[in-house]
Design a protein around this nucleic acid. Structure first.
Length: 388
DNA sequence: TCTGGGGTCCTAGGACCC
DNA sequence: TCTGGGGTCCTAGGACCC
């Protein structure tokens, strides 16, 4: 029997969820039916479109563009702020509902997941009928619409859920790939972004079909090891499994766009301190230690740079992260204006094997970790200001 | 009052070792 | 006396995704 995989995707997730939120707050007005977007805060230089309604989309507004530019396309545009906590709640409710049918789902992001249907087909029958029922149930219980893609593997299911929106179900079985996918422009293929699209167009490869039938050796010259994977994708070939266990993050980062460009060490240090605390809390919560600390900066022309340091002994202490990040910024930065600053922790491990520390030092560090964890809990309970 | 924040994976070069 | 080849680790940057 053929494998059956579904990809389930919330339509305009952030905007739909804010619409649901406003309706539960008694609003009589559904922002999904108007010229609306979810946008960042312009006064703190985060003014971009994060999600848009279908009518905004029809006017050419795209995710990622500035609100300034979106407003030029639609002067009457209404913008709403993010409500991340509520989004997380809606996301959890959606996945819980889907899990009542099968535990075999992979959460791919806050608003999409894969469902391995092969094993439960005996239970629920025809996949198309099942998808219709699921779609209806989600709308009735949670108040928003989803797209469902049905195919014989993850990639094709993902492609299918993206065909037309909203509230649609599409199939892209192996025998439909030529008809339904090969006519699409090359940038519609999952994994092909802006840069690769530009290169492919230069080679006169414009559609997924043209990529599917390209010469492997020829493409190898331009894309190296990527070439084979690209051609396979274009042919709808994909063997990825639906992985239901939650995989732990490989690393974690926090970054912040500054209200104003900063060009002195003294002004950047307080941000580094704040970020050290933020990533510190997160890594301690995971019960992990980081071997690598990286500092990320974005300059006034939006060029990103990173520098990192590998530690002899991994850490999860605010103060150690802060001291290392100060060292890094001093090495990498000569006070040119900076727009964004971030800290990333990588090479996370669960256990510490101290290479150089004496027993007493280990004791002290373990005590510090315990102390900081206690502070984390107090802050969580009573707010940031409880301890100075 | 122009351009977010959080991730993943891959590549290429240099250092170092045998 | 005149330069191989393979492997690993580390670093910086790029591409992509939501």
């Amino acid at each position: 029997m053929n494998r059956i995989v579904m990809h389930i995707d919330v339509n305009n997730a952030f905007l739909s969820w804010t619409a649901v939120y406003l309706l539960t707050q008694g609003s009589k007005y559904d922002i999904r039916k108007s010229y609306a977007v979810i946008g960042g805060d312009e006064s703190s230089r985060r003014g971009i479109v994060l999600a848009k309604s279908d009518s905004s989309k029809k006017l050419g507004i795209i995710t990622g563009e500035t609100l300034y530019s979106a407003r030029k396309k639609c002067p009457s545009l209404r913008t709403y702020p993010m409500n991340y906590e509520f989004y997380q709640k809606m996301s959890n409710m959606l996945f819980c509902l889907i899990k009542t049918y099968s535990p075999d789902i992979e959460i791919a992001s806050i608003d999409e997941c894969y469902l391995e249907y092969t094993k439960v087909r005996n239970l629920y029958g025809d996949e198309l009928e099942f998808a219709k029922k699921l779609q209806k149930e989600v709308y009735e219980k949670l108040g928003f619409t989803i797209n469902i893609g049905i195919a014989n593997n993850k990639l094709c299911a993902k492609m299918a859920s993206d065909f037309t929106k909203p509230n649609k179900i599409h199939t892209l079985y192996d025998n439909e790939i030529k008809d339904k996918m090969w006519c699409l422009p090359i940038n519609d293929l999952f994994g092909i972004g802006k840069k690769t699209t530009e290169k492919l167009l230069q080679l006169n490869i414009k559609t997924i079909g043209e990529l599917a039938n390209s010469n492997r050796n020829n493409l190898y010259k331009y894309f190296k090891n990527m070439a084979g994977a690209m051609i396979d994708s274009a042919n709808g070939i994909n063997n990825d499994l639906v992985i239901s266990e939650e995989v732990e993050n490989k690393g974690l980062s926090n970054e912040i766009t500054l209200i104003k460009d900063v060009s002195s060490k003294q002004d950047i240090y307080p941000y580094l301190l704040k970020l050290s605390e933020k990533v510190g809390i997160r890594v301690r919560k995971m019960d992990k230690y980081a071997y690598t600390v990286a500092v990320i900066i974005k300059d006034s022309s939006f060029k990103r740079r990173t520098h990192q340091k590998k530690l002899v002994n991994p850490t999860n202490l605010n103060n150690e992260i802060y001291e290392v990040s100060k060292k890094i910024i001093n090495e990498m930065w000569n006070d040119d204006p900076v727009r964004l600053i971030g800290i990333r922790l990588d090479n996370l491990v669960s256990n510490i094997n101290y290479q150089t520390s004496l027993f007493e030092n280990i004791k002290i560090r373990e005590n510090n970790t315990e102390l900081e964890k206690t502070v984390d809990k107090l802050k969580e309970k009573f707010g940031d200001k409880v301890i100075h």
